[in-house]
Amino acid sequence: MAIELIGLNKAFGDKRVLSDFSLRLERGITCIMGPSGKGKTTIVNILAGLIRPDSGEVNIPPDTKFSFVFQEDRLLEWESALTNVTFVTAHPKQNVAKALELLAEADLSDSVNKRARELSGGMKRRVTICRALIADYDIIILDEPFKGLDAKIKPRIMDMVRNHTQGKFALIITHDPAEAEYLGGRLIDI
């Protein structure tokens, strides 16, 4: 399976965000780094089909499913951490055990039944990562996934992401060179 973005151009009004951008994704982790406003989120949104490029090609196999950690948490604030994780699976009841394992791995065992709105910012972020990891899809996009995590838990969550994305196409957006270095894989600076 090959995933290619070829010659992408995108402007929002007068502001040109992407100019002839190309990328070939390999299996494993690919980190995209760069300053704000350089179009990193635009790239992943185009890849996931959330926005259309003005021109250029996106070559992915038809019916490819994406798993996504958005820049914002996008949690169901009124539902429990556990429901938020199983929500994205086709059969939530059959995935409870798997969700509980992931939440435990993210050090959230004590909070599985708490509503998302009762969780701290860092805890919410970890729930969104668990949600993305339970959906066992081939392509996983993580847009600043470690934002707001405290230094103590961050390495554990980065290890978790690295372990669960093995053999998959994982595209991670980050501002932090140390994160990219820790995760390994390819690094694309834009």
Binding site: F66, S67, R74, T83
Partner: peptide, 20 residues
């Protein structure tokens, strides 16, 4: 944003109605 999240993860209509 929630609807877009559900769309990306291909969550079915019944679950979107019930949970969102």
């Amino acid at each position: 944003n929630l609807l877009q999240m559900a769309k990306v993860f291909r969550v079915n209509l019944f679950k979107r109605i019930r949970h969102i």
